[in-house]
Amino acid sequence: MTDTSTLSETGTPSKGASHLSRYFYKSPLSRGYGLLSPTLLLMTLGIVVPVCILLVMSFWTRQGFGFDTTFTTANYVKAFDQPIYMALMKRSLYVSAWATISTVLLAYPMAYYVAFHVHKNKMMWIVLMTLPFWTSYLLRVFAWKVVLGYEGVINSFLMGMGVIDAPLEFLLYSPTAVIVTLTHAWAAFAILPMYVSLEKIDKSLLEAATDLGDGPIWRFIRITLPLSMPGIISASFLIFIPTTGDYITPALLGGPDGMMIGNLIQLQFGAVNNWPMGASLSIILMLFIASIGLVFLFLTKLARERIS
């Protein structure tokens, strides 16, 4: 793309440069957009357009095997009127909130350890932590089925030890099973952003905090935690957003009590064949996630100001 011959050694375009390249040279904004354009194009085609289609479709209704394209909010009214929809929505948010919290809580110490206490082969540690991701998502979910199952690892062990007489039924086919599996499945997504933000912390800041009288706990609360907040926030979003809409894990491990909104949406687009309803539910889910995200951001900002 860059025609180096039009740039003299000092970096200014030589006399022979075309108007276009001179324009690009002078305007950093246009250069920025130039660099972004492939991604922008893909984003527009792959995200903005489908979301618009979804939005339009959510105001249609099903008519036999086709659509009635007259504008109506009937789907939205239905979604808020019939208790099943909001119940599933609530459970989805509940399950994925707990999955997010437990993932972040589990992954933070790991990221912290690699960032502060590993001095050699940091990359190897990171790669090892993402190792579960080298197997397919389905396989990992099935693995948990083996662990949590009626005659699975945990139940057999506990019965063998004589701790329990009958298998614990809540382990499988429950929201707990879904939370446990999601936590494990998404751990690597949480570790990486938190590791990056912890790694970036200048070690002399920690020494300065110690020097100014803070022991390890206060130092963590006043320096490490606030400075790693960006990592925690992005990790939370990275997990919360996809897990809320997840339908594979609840389908395989959730049982009837563990069904989530994702399963319902999948049904609308599949067996039930009510695409407009599925679209409406997707839009509602998106709005819920967005508003929760905003509240979360606002709270962390507030907390950060409070700490300082």
């Binding site: 002399s204 020494e207 110690t210």
Partner: peptide, 22 residues
Amino acid sequence: VPPHYRPVNMVFQSYAIFPHLN
């Protein structure tokens, strides 16, 4: 005596000004 109990304070080479505080 650990560093946070010593009657000394330090000015670091990089100054170590906390970036999230004013």
